[in-house]
Simulated assay, not measured.
Amino acid sequence: MAAKNAAIDEVRAAPLLVLLIFVPVVILTDMALPEAHTLLFALSILAIIPLAALLSRATEAVSSRTGDAIGGLLNATLGNLTELVISLAALQAGQYLLVKASIAGAIVTNTLFMLGGAFLLGGLKHHVQEFNRISARFQASLLFLATVAVLVPSVISSVDHTSALSQKLSLGLAIILIAVYALGMLFSLKTHRELFASAAQAEEEHHAWPIQIAVTVLVIVTLLVAFISEIFVGSVQVAAQNIGMTPAFVGFIVVALVGGAAEMTTAFSAARANRLDLSIGIALGSASQIALFVAPVLVITSYFLGPEPMSLEIWPGAVTMVLIATMAASLLSNGGRGVWYIGVLALAVYAIFGLTLFLLPPASP
């Protein structure tokens, strides 16, 4: 009875968990109708969303039991695990355009859609909201560094068209980005942790699962996400053509929204509760994790998992979008106050990007 009540409480706290019914549905559909790519594409999206919510909940529980340093490392590793697993499946299948689009899309989605939505929803309930400007600008600075790292191989490719140079450069940049992110965690969690006190206090208010349950959920859900990601990647090309979308649009918009659904729910709820510090920490923190940790890990992993090494080079339009999103993050975090109309502006920019990708898909780099 207690377990049943606990499960009901979890569903009430995270309504996305109702969608867990689609996990067995998509597995059974893949076994019975493996050629129904459009149906499998839709069902896999509906199945990944609640699994992402469970991963986010379990990651939070594990991190809260370990201490700041290890907890920061776990958040870097597991905080964007859904996007990482989907990208690894696409990497193994050689769909590099989908991988790069999902990386760029996740950065832009977290920076514009999640942050803009938090400002809008929080501002509609509260006239003006305050947040820790230092913490927000720190994350925005990390994003700017990542944008430079993506911009360099894209610019070099226009001068030197050899893939060998781009791959070597990307590998070196990946190592630099991971080192910078590790030092950033040391800075924010150890040497200057007092500057980030507001966000840390907000996170400690959450009730955490017992560590045994959290670890068990992490293992099981990670395996399920990996399995369903293979179904998703296997159906995405045909399904995208049937629906009228390209892999670039799917990676940039769909994968980013699906993978970040759980974090968005938490960020939006926190903003409505006048905890904008937590919302900004989730949005910009997740974006910087993807840019400085997930993307470099994918570059390094491609040497072992993919058909050939992957570079950080992406098409010019995506570089421009990431750069604009980074600039927007700096502008939004500069004042230390949030109002609803700022959210409207950020969401409008995101809508422009989405419409552009849908109508004018870029060619493969």
Rank of each mutant, 00 (worst) to 15 (best):
Y303Q: 10
A7I: 11
P362F: 02
I253Q: 08
S56N: 13
I175G: 01
I300P: 01
L28G: 09
P309S: 10
A197E: 15
L360W: 14
T246L: 12
S188F: 02
R57C: 00
A36R: 10
L88W: 01
G306M: 07
I70K: 08
A36L: 10
I220C: 14
K4T: 12
F232Y: 15
V255A: 06
L312H: 00
Q241K: 14
F138G: 06
L323E: 06
T266A: 15
L223N: 03
S229H: 11
V236Y: 03
L345G: 10
N80C: 04
S158F: 10
E313N: 00
V233T: 06
D9T: 13
L143I: 12
T246C: 10
F232G: 07
A291Q: 04
G71Y: 00
I176G: 00
G335M: 06
A47Q: 08
I48N: 03
Y350H: 13
A267C: 07
S311C: 06
L40C: 02
A256D: 11
G281D: 12
V159D: 02
A329V: 09
A146D: 02
G71N: 01
L189T: 01
V18H: 10
L124Y: 15
V85K: 05
I228Q: 09
G338T: 03
F358H: 15
D9H: 13
S102W: 00
Y350E: 06
V23S: 07
Y96E: 01
Y96D: 02
P153S: 04
G184L: 07
A90R: 03
T301Q: 06
A164M: 14
R193T: 10
V250K: 05
P15A: 08
S229T: 08
G123V: 02
L278F: 15
F358L: 15
L360F: 15
L91D: 09
I220Y: 07
M310V: 01
R57N: 09
V255C: 09
I280S: 11
H207P: 08
I70T: 09
F138I: 07
L120Q: 06
L78K: 04
F293N: 11
A52F: 00
K190C: 10
F268K: 08
P316N: 10
G72K: 03
I176W: 01
A318C: 04
I134S: 14
L278K: 03
A287G: 09
S302V: 04
Q201H: 11
G105F: 00
L331K: 13
